[in-house]
């Protein structure tokens, strides 16, 4: 699943274009707790979260994740967007809530495990 497809499925907007806009993304992880992301993520490419601070990008960066989806219509400040841009990580905002966003992407073929 490409970034453009995620954006379309989630009625989302791209806040920062990453280095991997054309790459096929296979799996995702959803959490508001960054320590859990650090503990449990293996090679999931997409991070779905309601958390909205720079540590989201840092965590994604540490785990080599390529795309962050901010749920519940969160509007990040410029620091977060700039950091994502700087790190080449795609940042998407969606009005959907976490459960719905996960369900939509899962149904469309995004997996939990790599």
């Amino acid at each position: 699943m490409k970034v453009s497809e995620i954006v379309q499925l989630l009625d989302g907007v791209v806040l920062s274009e990453g280095d991997n806009m054309e790459k096929d993304l296979h799996s995702a992880c959803a959490s508001d707790m960054m320590s859990d992301v650090l503990a449990f993520v293996k090679d999931q490419a997409v991070l779905i979260t309601g958390l909205c601070n720079p540590q989201v990008v840092r965590t994604a960066e540490m785990m080599d994740m390529l795309c962050i989806v901010l749920v519940r219509g969160k509007k990040p400040d410029t620091t977060l967007v700039e950091l994502a841009r700087d790190r080449g990580i795609t940042l998407i905002a969606t009005p959907h809530r976490m459960f719905a966003a996960c369900g939509i992407l899962y149904q469309a073929g995004l997996k939990a495990e790599v």
Partner: peptide
């Protein structure tokens, strides 16, 4: 809090440039 992680980020970049295996880099980074 907004600066937290900068040192880890710098170390991760250095290891990457050195060509250390990505699995090892990830363990260091976390």
């Amino acid at each position: 809090f907004s600066q937290a992680g900068m040192a880890s980020d710098a170390v991760k970049s250095t290891l990457k440039k050195m060509g250390i295996a990505s699995e090892d880099i990830r363990r260091v980074a976390i």
